[in-house]
């Protein structure tokens, strides 16, 4: 039963990391154009080197 004392904080912490990541992506406008992003991976414009 003592494992619960570790596991519950650990699970809450990991969930919290996910939440923070979500809020970060929201703030950096990662959800503005989902359809476009899905299509952009198919474009071979910047395959050789990243966009400067």
């Amino acid at each position: 039963m003592e494992t619960l004392l570790y596991l519950i904080p650990v699970s809450l912490f990991l969930g919290g990391v996910g939440l923070v990541a979500f809020l970060w992506s929201l703030k950096h406008r990662q959800y503005e154009d989902l359809e476009g992003d899905a299509n952009r991976i198919l474009s071979d414009d910047w395959d050789k080197h990243p966009k400067p």
């Binding site: 503005e32 154009d33 989902l34 359809e35 476009g36 299509n39």
Partner: peptide
Amino acid sequence: SARVNLTL
């Protein structure tokens, strides 16, 4: 710069 938004 030009950026397409495909959703909109």
